[in-house]
C-alpha cells in the first residue's frame, strides 16, 4: 500500500502568532528513505514548520502525522522516532567524543549494552577511535558535524531533521557529510534538510521552497528547473524568493 510508505503527512498545517501567519496551510508528504529539501528565504516560516513537525510546537490548525504519530497529541512518541541536528546545537563541547555518544544514547533510552556496541561501531566507522577520549571542542568543525549527525541517528530514528547542517564547512567535508546523508537514506531513514547552499538542494530527491509562509513549489530538482526555465536551483530560488515580502 502507498500509505505505509509515507512517514510525514501534512495537511494544511498552519501556525499563527496573533495576526501573523508564520506557516500558512502547508500540505505535503515525505516518503520513507527520501531526502527532502526544505528551502526558503530567512523568515519564510521554515523554522516554525520544522518545530511543529518535531513536536516542539503545537499547530494552530491543520493535520500532520510524523512516523504515524499525531503532532497534536503524540508529541512524546514523535520525539522518540525522530533525530535532530542543527548547526548551532549539536554536541557538548566540554564532553569527550565517547561521553557525548553515551549521553545521547542514554537520552534516547538505549540499553547500556546497545550504547556500548553503538559507541564502538560509531568510533570505528568515523575513524575517531584514537580521538574517543578527547574533548569535542578540540575536533575540527567537519568532524564535529559528522559526529553530531551520527549521534542524531544513533537511536535509528524514522526521520532525521537537519537544520543547515553544513554551514561554513569546506567543500570536501561538505561532500563527506552528504555521503553520510545518502547512506542514512539508503538504510531507510528519511532525511529532512534545510540549507542555504543551492547546489546541495540538487542532492535532494525532492525540494520544497517556502515563500512568506506558503509552500510555493514542491518537486524534484530537475522538474523545478525545467518548469522555471532555469539552469540552476539558485535561479529557481531567486525567481521565487525575490517577490517575498517578509524577512526574519
Amino acid at each position: 500500500m502507498m500509505q505505509d510508505d509515507r512517514v510525514i503527512v501534512c495537511e494544511k498545517l498552519t501556525k499563527r502568532f496573533g495576526d501573523f501567519v508564520a506557516t500558512n496551510e502547508i500540505t505535503f508528504d515525505v516518503h520513507r528513505g527520501e531526502i527532502f529539501g526544505f528551502l526558503g528565504a530567512n523568515g519564510a516560516g521554515k523554522t516554525t514548520a520544522m518545530r511543529m513537525l518535531c513536536g516542539l510546537s503545537s499547530p494552530s490548525s491543520g493535520k500532520a502525522t510524523i512516523a504515524g504519530f499525531d503532532v497534536y497529541t503524540q508529541t512524546e512518541q514523535i520525539k522518540k522516532h525522530i533525530g535532530y541536528m542543527s548547526q548551532k546545537f549539536s554536541l557538548y563541547e566540554n564532553l569527550t567524543v565517547r561521553e557525548n555518544i553515551e549521553f545521547f544514547g542514554g537520552i534516547y533510552g538505549l540499553s547500556d549494552e546497545r550504547i556500548r556496541s553503538k559507541t564502538a561501531e560509531l568510533l570505528q566507522r568515523l575513524g575517531l577511535k584514537s580521538e574517543a577520549n578527547k574533548l569535542v571542542a578540540s575536533l575540527p568543525l567537519g568532524w564535529k558535524q559528522k559526529l553530531s549527525f551520527s549521534v542524531a541517528v544513533l537511536h535509528e530514528p524514522k526521520i532525521v531533521f537537519l537544520d543547515e547542517p553544513t554551514g561554513g564547512v569546506d567543500p570536501v567535508t561538505r561532500r563527506q557529510f552528504w555521503d553520510m546523508i545518502y547512506e542514512a537514506a539508503n538504510s531507510g531513514i528519511t532525511v529532512f534538510v534545510t540549507t542555504h547552499y543551492m547546489d546541495e538542494a540538487e542532492y535532494c530527491n525532492r525540494i520544497s521552497i517556502m515563500v512568506d509562509g506558503r509552500m510555493e513549489v514542491l518537486d524534484t530538482p530537475a522538474n523545478l528547473k525545467s518548469s522555471f526555465h532555469a539552469r540552476s536551483m539558485d535561479e529557481v530560488f531567486y525567481q521565487l524568493a525575490r517577490g517575498a515580502k517578509r524577512g526574519d
Partner: peptide
C-alpha cells in the same frame, strides 16, 4: 553573507 538567504546574498 553567512547565514543570509541566496536572494539577499545576490
Amino acid at each position: 553573507t553567512t547565514g543570509v538567504d541566496p536572494v539577499s546574498r545576490k
